[in-house]
């Protein structure tokens, strides 16, 4: 596997993990809107959030910025360099 393919495979894996943890965050968020004092849900949300922050950092280093403000390259506007989410290639890695 050459370097570019390896990066793409890592990117696809990180996207998959990010989508999974973000799904859990959305689910827990909606649950907490209805049950705001549930200690178990609050603790679960906090754990997920930490995992999410680490994953997002790894994803942005491997693939590119998730948000415009995460575009940190001083000489090039990386925000528009990676495929948009509706493109097949953005979902295949």
């Amino acid at each position: 596997m050459d370097m570019m393919n390896k990066n793409a495979a890592n990117g696809a894996r990180l996207l998959d993990e990010l989508q999974k943890v973000d799904f859990c965050l959305v689910e827990t968020n909606l649950y907490l809107d209805a049950y705001p004092s549930c200690a178990e849900a609050l603790a679960f949300y906090r754990t997920l959030k930490e995992k999410r922050q680490q994953l997002a950092k790894q994803y942005e280093a491997t693939v590119g910025p998730l948000t415009a403000t995460a575009s940190e390259n001083a000489v090039s506007w990386d925000w528009i360099k990676t495929p948009w989410p509706w493109e097949l290639v953005a979902n295949m890695g």
Partner: peptide, 15 residues
């Protein structure tokens, strides 16, 4: 709102 550059669930339609 802040846009995040990924789908909530992947879409991979080949045909």
């Amino acid at each position: 709102w802040i846009y995040e550059k990924k789908l909530q669930y992947p879409v991979r339609i080949k045909n």
